[in-house]
Amino acid sequence: MDSHGQVEQRGVWGVVDSDIGPLLLAATREGLVSVVFHATDAVRDRAVERLASRLGAEPVEAPGSPLLADAIRQVAAYLAGGRRDFDLPLDWSLTSGFNREVLRELASGVPYGTVVGYGDLARRVGQPGAAQAVGMAMGANPLPVVVPCHRVVESGGGIGGFGGGMETKRKLLALEGVLPEPLF
């Protein structure tokens, strides 16, 4: 097998600089598999190690790879306010069961500029009492931004938690016009 084929076998990753900090994006032949916030060197190294253990081989840095280039372009355009939807193949292999079901519903059913409550999302997947489990699924989302867990909020009007940090969640919701721009 040629070296390019081996790269695709293991997966590839690259970092996008943005207003919400550097994001690590990783992809396999199936599609985008991981998005990691605050991808400083230490965070990036840990993320690549975690991906290696989950994918069975260490992914290689190859932001120009055809597997990743479109995802990097689309995420950068979204974060610059020039794109509302993602048209990317997704590799769901890092999530399963209830979490995968909830994340797929979120990806397909909660459009740009809208929000959904944890309990509402639980009801949409036929588990009306599972609001807390939905919160856990959001925290375990391997594809934040693209699978928009920032759009899930508390029913009482609270913003809810967020793996990328509250400031990042506020910035993403402001970008989509759901919240006013943060003052600081």
Score class of each variant (00 low, 15 high):
residue 2 D to M: 09
residue 5 G to L: 01
residue 8 E to Q: 11
residue 13 W to D: 04
residue 14 G to Q: 01
residue 16 V to G: 04
residue 20 I to H: 06
residue 21 G to P: 09
residue 27 A to V: 13
residue 29 R to K: 15
residue 29 R to Y: 06
residue 31 G to L: 08
residue 32 L to Q: 08
residue 33 V to P: 00
residue 34 S to V: 12
residue 34 S to I: 01
residue 45 D to N: 06
residue 45 D to I: 09
residue 48 V to T: 08
residue 51 L to F: 07
residue 53 S to K: 15
residue 55 L to Q: 02
residue 55 L to T: 10
residue 57 A to V: 09
residue 59 P to N: 11
residue 60 V to L: 10
residue 61 E to T: 12
residue 62 A to H: 14
residue 63 P to W: 01
residue 64 G to S: 06
residue 66 P to R: 07
residue 67 L to S: 02
residue 68 L to D: 06
residue 68 L to Q: 03
residue 76 A to C: 03
residue 76 A to N: 04
residue 77 A to N: 09
residue 80 A to F: 01
residue 87 D to L: 08
residue 89 P to G: 05
residue 91 D to I: 11
residue 99 N to R: 11
residue 101 E to C: 05
residue 103 L to Y: 03
residue 109 G to R: 03
residue 112 Y to E: 04
residue 115 V to E: 05
residue 116 V to M: 10
residue 117 G to F: 06
residue 122 A to G: 08
residue 125 V to A: 11
residue 127 Q to E: 15
residue 132 Q to C: 14
residue 134 V to P: 12
residue 135 G to V: 14
residue 137 A to Q: 06
residue 141 N to C: 15
residue 143 L to E: 06
residue 144 P to L: 13
residue 148 P to D: 11
residue 151 R to V: 12
residue 153 V to T: 05
residue 155 S to P: 04
residue 158 G to T: 07
residue 159 I to N: 06
residue 164 G to F: 12
residue 169 K to F: 10
residue 169 K to P: 07
residue 170 R to V: 14
residue 176 E to D: 12
residue 177 G to E: 02
residue 178 V to E: 03
residue 179 L to E: 10
residue 179 L to H: 11
residue 182 P to E: 06
residue 184 F to W: 13
